[in-house]
Design a protein around this nucleic acid. Sequence first.
RNA 1: GGGCCCGUAGUCUAGCGGUAUGACGCCCGGCUCACUACCGGGAGGUCCGGGGUUCGAAUCCCCGCGGGCCCACCA
Length: 758
Amino acid sequence: MDKRPNFKKIEEKWTKLWNKDLQRLFKFDINKKGNVYIIDSPPPFTSGDAHMGHALGWVWMDFIARFKRIEGYNVYLPQGWDCHGLPTELKVENRLKIPKTDVERFLKACREWTENSIESMKNTFKKLGFVPDWSKEYKTMDRKYKAFVQYTLIRMFEENLIYREEHPILWCPNCKTAISAEESGYIKRKDIFAYIKLPIKEENKSILIATTRPEMISACVVVLIGDGIYVETKEGLIVSKVYAEKEGLEIIREYDANELEEKIVEIPLINREVRIKRDPEVEYEFGTGIVWVCTYGDEMDIKWQKKYDLPVYQCIDTEGRIINSLKEINGLKVEDARKKIVEILKEKGYLYKSEEIEHNVLVHAERSECKHPIELIPKEQFFIRILDLKDKLLEIQKDIKFYPEWMRQRLINWINSLSWDWVISRNRIWGLAFPFLKTKDSKIISVDLEDLPFDPRTDKEKLEKYKRIYGDIEPFSEVVDVWVESSITPLAIILYALIEEKDIDPKDLPRLFNKIKEYVPVDLRPQGYEIIRTWLFDTLVRVYLLTGKKPWKEVLINGMVLAEDGRKMSKSLGNAVDPNDIIDKYSADALRYWALFSSHGDDYRFAWKDIETGQAFLIKLWNLSRYIWMNCKNVDIKNKPGLSKEDVEFLKRLEKLIAKSHSLVGEYKFQEYIKLWRKFVWGEFANSYLEKNKMRVKQGDLAAKWTLLATLRIILAYLHPAFPFTTEEIYSIIFGKKENKKSIIETKFKELESLFPH
RNA sequence: GGGCCCGUAGUCUAGCGGUAUGACGCCCGGCUCACUACCGGGAGGUCCGGGGUUCGAAUCCCCGCGGGCCCACCA
């Protein structure tokens, strides 16, 4: 053994072995029953480079997989790739300057870009010591993955779980695309808050409403008042009593709500009469205590429109311009129209006043730099029915174990906050097409299984076939939301295990699907908390709808990686550290030491000194082994000599530690595990037992030598899941040949039990 | 506005009903034949503040203060 471990050489050697010659040790055999452990590992979005967040998650998974393997499980650790998505599309468009109009060329460029990203990320994962079963590697852009997703969509469509309907959807006028709730977010913004007088029919009085969306005047369908007292002021304005008092307006008389409900309001400039209704959800204290409902100003308007079955007026188009309104503002951008209409209202005497208000505006926020305010626009979209599912989802989540338990709350909150069905269509290019067609009488039909995967943009001959059968048919131009693809990973990984590298006959999918169902729920879903409301939730929905079961038995949540400055680590902040640099400067095992010290769900700070701490421990382990190699390597471990009392006690202490280790891993407490073993190896073994017994070793005491060797053998097995490179190298030098084994993975913890005194 | 989390030695961190885990740093002493990236020894904490439950609280409950994250319809 060298005086110092050459980490670079060791890493190169073992990375190659595990991923090639020894890859068989990491294979999941789906035909072997019993003792199966399946990890629904995340397919990372193929953004380009692996970051520290990946390093953390992938080390956790690899630790679990290795430990379970040595425990004797038939482990399935898959590696997939989430390929589709807007960021790739934008990169191809902007960097490679390929026009979206040339669809075939554009798609090809996206595919090439994605393949390159995968290679780069895969390389980093391998350097970390992460070893999946490569024979089942999947990409969401694979033909068979796409066919499978489309098959599940057809199934759901046939069970009436998917529908197409005109519905107000979140629409980004800037990106000209529908977005989902999870892509939107609120930001604080300053806007006009206009107080508008709405005359009451046949009375010389006006209702005063306050709004941030005066430009939507042509879409006003009802005026709502809340539970409270309303008053008439000297100026002939009807407002909440609270507002009148606050503004110091002279009150002439009070109304009760019933009296107001009789009245009809004339919407100025557009010549429409609307009713006044009382609704408990109106915030009496806010503004004038009165609201006009426009279709659709915000999500609340949708609720009220449905509740009172109000007519829908679309006053904004997909470009974010005003339509169907006054000729003065038609064609104007929303923001310009807002200013203009305020001027007009003022001119005509309908504007009571306008002020500035800071409020939360729904914008296109996540996975996007756009930040443009979102409009609600009625459009035909595909939906998955999830609203009816709330109670059921709340029920089944109870049966999934969460680590840490408190992360469950995020899922529950999200389920409770659902307010409409899941919009699954996107107006984009780099994505999966819908396996549906529209006939000339507007009926939606699924394509035949034999035609999967189906893409009307490129499969011209398949389209021809349907044209021959149905006459005029129309494909859908949208693509599927990326989460629809990634939300069936627990099922897709089983599909890949069943077929391995073979291609599939799509007509075989129903048979395969029935087989897949048998493996649900799988054992573990590891992921970060930031995608609980997307990936975790969506998977729960899809797997439940498709199989009637929960997707997993357990969920393990990791936190975000923070930079040394305590802020979120990100490229744009310039505080990101590349895992490859850490491995190059120190070692993969040192990086793993850092990753395993993170606790469940909490954000975790990166610090170079933690890497150094890990590195120091690895060197300690190396040198400790070196001493044993120098002094004890010729001892036959299978031939246990008579041990001294001290040796026996020491080994008994180790045996206790082992029992504790297994229970810690059962709860995925990696940090406690490392601490326990570090303390034992460095303190109790190296500095205490070994130091005390050096004399015996020198004198050739076989019992002491045997104890040292046996202890090291056990330590290597238990530290292997954490530090696979270093432990494999030491093992191969001291034990490999004698045991006729190439890797620690080939032995099982159970086999080591014979080394203990009983 | 609601929810979740966090506040523990100089710094970071574990524990989450029995006076506290570990790392780094610091102080004193050692180049001892595997390792000076080491060895031996040591100092350092009113576990954010206040109240409550309990024989007993860092740990449970309530109220504050400070920090972070997530969600939300205030027109």
